[in-house]
Structures are given as C-alpha cells and as structure tokens.
Design a protein around this nucleic acid. Structure first.
Lengths: 208, 208, 208, 208
DNA sequence: GTGTAAGCGAGACGGTACGTCGTGTCTTGGA
DNA sequence: TCCAAGACACGACGTACCGTCTCGCTTACAC
C-alpha cells in the first residue's frame, strides 16, 4: 500500500544477518512519517476527512507536500495508515479466559471497539467512505481491517458454538454480518456507539 | 430541501383556500428539473458521486450551470433529490395483506430493495460515502433515506410483535439496526445482496 | 440611439395637429424613464461607471431590468442619455456680448464646463471610455457631444480672429484640439479642473 | 507592480554584497511570462482590453489560468505590464544632440509616438478607456505610462526655456497638458495622428 | 575527501471544480 | 402592449486542491 509499509513487511525486517541492503542516497526521515500521520489523524478527528486537504496535513506536519505524495499515494491511504498505526492494538487481543462465556467476550470486544471509536469514529467513517470510491483502497481496507475483525468475531462465534453457548445451526457468517453491520450502520448514521448497544447486539445474537 | 420541492409541497399542503399564489416572474421550466435530475442520476450511476461535477450534470442536461445552483444549493442536494425522486417508490408500499406473516413481508421488502440495488447499488454506495464526508449531505441523506426505511422496518417489526410473531421483549430499534446493518455491511463490502441473504436475515431475526 | 429619443426628435414632436399616432397597448411610463436616468446618474456619480450594473440601476429606480433594455441598448447609452438630459443646458448659451474680449468668453465657457464637471466628471469619463469600446456609441457621442462643443470653441476662435484678437494665421481646428485636449487630458487623469486651468489655457492660446 | 518585476529590480539595485537571495521552491518559468505578455498584447491589440478575458490570454499563451493570477493580481496589471514591456523603449530615448532646436526634438518625439500608435492606437484607446472604469488600473496607468511621458515633454520644454527657445514665462506643466491633450483628444476621437499634427502642435507651442 | 544518489523544504505548473456575478433574452401574470 | 418579476443560457471572475515538476540544500554511503 505504501512504500514504507512494504519495506517494513519485507523479508529484511528483523533479519540482522542479511545486510539491510541500504538504499543509496539520503534515507527517509522516519520521524517525519510519524509527524505526518499524527497531523493527519489530528486534523481528521478535529474537522473530518472531507474538510482536510493534503496541503493542510503537510503544513500541520511541517513537511513538504511532495513528501506526503512520496509515501502515500492518496489522502485516503495516508489516513488509513495513520489510523491503523494506532488502532491495530485492538486486534491484537489476548486469548480470552476459558471460563468466560463467549457472549461476554463478544460484548467486551465490542465495548472496546466502541470506546476507541469515541475518538476515531470520524476517521473510520472517512475510511469506509474512501473504500467506496477506490477499488484498490477497498481491497486493502477489507484485507487489513474488515476481514481480520470479521474473523475475530466469526471465530468467537464458532467457539461459542463448540462450547454449546450458541445453537449449532446458526450461520456464523451471517451473524458476523449482523454484528458488524449494526455497528457500521449506527456509526455511519452518526448514532451513538455505547455499551448499551454492545449489550443489545450480544443479547440479540445469543439471547435469540 | 429545495425551493421547488418546498413550493410544491407548500401548495398542496392542506390549505385549499389560499390561492395558488403564483410566483411573479417567469416560472421555472419544470421540464428542465426533470432533465437535470435524470442527468444527475445517470452520471452518478455510471461514474459515482465523487466523479460527477455540477458542470457535467448541467451539460448533460443541456442547462446552464447557474440553473442548477438556482434550484439546489449543493451537488449533494441535487443528487439526493434525483435519487429519491425515483427511489421513494420503493418506500411507498401498499399495506401488506393481513394474513401474511410479517417475516414474509420483511423478506419481500428486503428482496425488493436488493433487486433495485442490482441497478443502483454502486450509486447508493457512493451516496453513503459522500454522506461520511459532508455533514449537511449526511443530514439530508438520513432524513430522506435512512430514517424512512428504518421506520418501515421498525413498524413492521412492531406489527409482528402485536401479532405475536415476534417476542414482545425484543428491541425493535436494535433489530432494525441489525437488519439494515447487515445489508449495508455487505453492500459496502462488495458482497452479494441476494434473496438468500434476505432469507437469512429474516431467519435470524424471527427464527432465532 | 434610443427609441424614446428618436420619438422625441421625430416629426410629430410639438405638432399638435397631427394626431399623436397613439401606439396600441399600454403606453410607456415616461416617469419611469426619469427615475431610471436619475438612478443611473446618481449611482455613476457615487460609485463610478464600472461599479454600477444594469441590475443595480433598475433596482435603484424601482424598475424591471427589462424596462431598461427596452429603452436603451446599453448601459453606456443609458448613462449618456442621463448625462445629456441635464448637461445640454451648457451648450445652449446666449450669444456673448459684443464688447467682451473673446478670450474672456472662452475662459468663462471653460469655467462653466469645469464647474459642471465637479459633479459629473466621473460620468463624462465613463462616457469617453464607453465611446472607445463601441463604434456606434462613439459616433453618437461625437455627434451629440464632442462636435457641438468643438464647434462652439472653433466658432469662438474664428470670431476672435475676425475681431483681431487672435492671429489670422492660427489653425483654429488645431487650437480647438489643444483646448479640449488639455481639458480631457486632465479629466481623464484625475487632475483638477479649476478656474486656474481655464485661465491658463486661454492665456496660452491667446497670449502666445 | 508585479512580483517578478520587483524581484528583478531588487536584485540589481545597488547592493552587490547581498547574495542573489534565490527564492526557495521551483523558480518561475520566465519564458512563460514572455508568452503570456505576448498573448495579452496580441489579444488586446486585436480585440481591445474589454473583450479579452484572463482565460483567453492563458489559453493563447498555453499557460494555466492560475499562473496568470500568481504573477499579476489583475488583468489590468498584466495587460499594462505587457504593453509597457514593449512600449517603454519609446521613453528610453537618447539625449538629443545639443545643436538641435528643442522644437525639432519635440516634433520627432511626437512623430515617433504617432508612428508606434499606427499599430497600438486601438490598444491604447482601450487602455485609456479601462483606466476610466477602474480606480486601481488608473493609478498604475498613470504612474507607468502617463507621468513618464509627461515628464519627458516637460523636461524638454524646460530645456527649451533654458536655451532661450521658449519664453521663460510659459507654464511648462500647462504646455505639457496641451501637447498630450491634443494628441489624446484626436486619438480618442478617431482622428488621424500624423506628422502634420505633430508639426502643428509644435508650431503652436513654440511658434505662438 | 569526494562523488553520487536520494530525501527534503519550498513553491511553480497545468488542470479541474467550485460558487458568484453580470449580461442580454425569454416568459409569466397583471395593469 | 407595457410593466414588475424573475428564470434562462452564457461566460468571466477569483479561489482552492490536485498531482507533477523543478529548484537548492541536506544527508548518507561508497569509492
């Protein structure tokens, strides 16, 4: 998606034996990437995706406009990257304790997400929007955001089925769409994402 | 939302005594409004909201750019107006036969929407996207599209509760979010909207 | 130049015997012409020709824009007409007393013009400008304004030659251009038109 | 008057110690400035100031519209700049030979101007017209065109006085207005500007 | 050291769209 | 037939972004 990200995920990462294959020329100022991401996130949070231009992000970050273009092909990808850089912590959750009912685990998962979205709801909305307008972006967004989160929920529901907490006949893919759908629907329509909602969704899914 | 619409609804609204209050000056060319709406719809369908400019709509409709500004304050309002002028037919559904289970009515409602979205799915996606990037657009979109459809489903679910087809304890607002959410989630993620999905949603809601 | 003006100069004017050949339909509101002329003059005086639009004159006069177009083909012609309607008094001067030196007559003539231009300088400037941009307007302006005033001065200078107050060899046409030229030059460059200037011009012409 | 001109003159001005202070960022394409000026000049000559729009100049020059706005704040400034860039050659005349009577020098100066106006008379007319309709334009026009030429003539007349070729009591400022006035008056009234006129003006001023 | 190669800040460039304004023409209802 | 009102087609205006480019300067490694 962006050069830097590719480099990070590249084979060289972490392998101290292979020489870093240092590129010639002046290396990138990685600090600048951070400043830019932070600026992007800040402006999107404060004013919304549509009100923010690349120029303004560059100015806010004290970077040249071209620097942004060098690193991210699109405002959308920049914001996406900025968003993930601090949001990925959510996905990396520890395995739940075995004695906790899966409904509670799901509820906590949703509460956690909703708590983060108090702050980053606007950014996520803008990312969903951007995904509708660019095929490539959509693919990345789905791969890196939608599907991982979908899998977490679906896995959780399957686990619940195994444990007998959820009827075996239930279509977990469908349930996943219902869970995430309810959350997206309310997010995209500017409605509150609170613990009551999390509780309600879980109740509908599990309570039946 | 636009002057013309208000005028129209103003004349018809209740008070038959008030004379038609024909505005002074040359009347608007209503045919042009139709042409403009059609052009807007066509272009949004073909290329998406973001790719369409007011100039292009005007040119496509054979009207002056200013004429569009005279009638709609924003591209957003124009496109939504155009979109709803032909989409509201869906909402205006006859009351269902009393002997049909509400689950079937809901299923048919969803199937109907899905069928329409075979054609307008891309346009709706771009509208939802636009709503995330523009506060005003979002408000209009919600008032004229999201909420009416939400009310239809919620009413239907309440009706089902009255008829005993749905547990009285269920939170109809929550269920509405689940129903529409699942549909939005799949639409926005490029997944199929077919009768099987409609059936599945209904089964989860009603069947448990 | 304008319909009304043509009508005025037509054969019927003043001839009470010929029936007025009343046109069918509603007669023109001649009062409106006055209001419009006054509004045009007022706005041009206050804000300058360029800052005034036809719409504003119409609004100021409480008339419809079309009414202005009906009567004058151009903003320039309207202002020209408004200007002449109150400026032609200058040209209609009594024959000077025979015992007054022609240099004094010329000086008084210039002082008189300059005095009027304290108020209408801006309008005249705009008329001269308009004449540069429209061939037809230029012709009218020359016929109705430039040449009459030129003839007055030239006649005056010839008279002075006859009376021996001015050398017989002097080129009166050239002198006329010098006199009016000096005055135009200062007007068009925003310099003062005062009695000192009038005195100076006369001194140069007559004093040698 | 325009940024570029100021920068140019700034560098050369006196202080050779100051480094050239190369501006950061991509330098302006000076060739483009030339193309734009040439296009402006061409269009104004062919169609007059009022008929030319910034868009057309940009298109004719093969430049973006914004580029013009970047360099000149106004169509007026652009056109005047273009006009003067080639007209100032006239003003930059060598000092006349000491043995030539100043009347001859003035005559030649006028003949020279008149010769140039064979080509640019229409353009100058439209510029004078524009100056009457726009305060700012007028100021620039006066500073960069009217006054320099006025000074040339006035200096010449003062010189003539020193040399005893012109009466010491004559008001040179007034004479300057007469000279230029006659020339403007005939230009603006579509009359010929030929050598005979130049001769006549000089004769009136000097010959008396 | 001294190339050489790239990143960086700055900002100009060709474009495109925006929303506003003015023009001259037209089309209503009412006088 | 005119008038007041205002819609209409047209086109210029000045602004804002976009994505690309071109400067001079600054870093690094490699010779």
């Amino acid at each position: 998606m962006n050069d830097e990200a590719e480099a990070e995920s590249g084979v060289d990462a972490g392998d101290a034996v292979t020489p870093p294959a240092t590129a010639p020329g002046r290396p990138r100022d990685e600090e600048a990437s951070g400043r830019i991401r932070a600026a992007a996130l800040k402006l999107v949070r404060e004013e919304g995706y549509g009100q923010v231009s690349i120029s303004r992000i560059a100015k806010e970050a004290g970077a040249a406009r071209q620097t942004l273009y060098n690193r991210w092909p699109t405002k959308a990808e920049l914001v996406l990257d900025a968003f993930f850089a601090q949001a990925n912590a959510i996905a990396a959750r520890p395995d739940p304790a075995p004695d906790v009912p899966r409904s509670i685990v799901l509820r906590d998962f949703l509460c956690d997400i909703f708590a983060h979205l108090q702050r980053d709801g606007a950014a996520l909305r803008s990312l969903i929007a951007a995904a509708q307008q660019d095929e490539d972006f959509c693919a990345i967004f789905r791969t890196r955001f939608v599907e991982p989160r979908g899998h977490i929920v679906e896995e959780l529901l399957r686990d619940a089925q195994k444990r007998g907490e959820l009827g075996a006949g239930r279509d977990t893919a469908m349930l996943t769409a219902l869970v995430h759908g309810a959350f997206w629907y309310r997010l995209l329509n500017g409605q509150a994402l609170d613990d009551r909602l999390a509780q309600g969704i879980v109740a509908e899914i599990f309570g039946g």
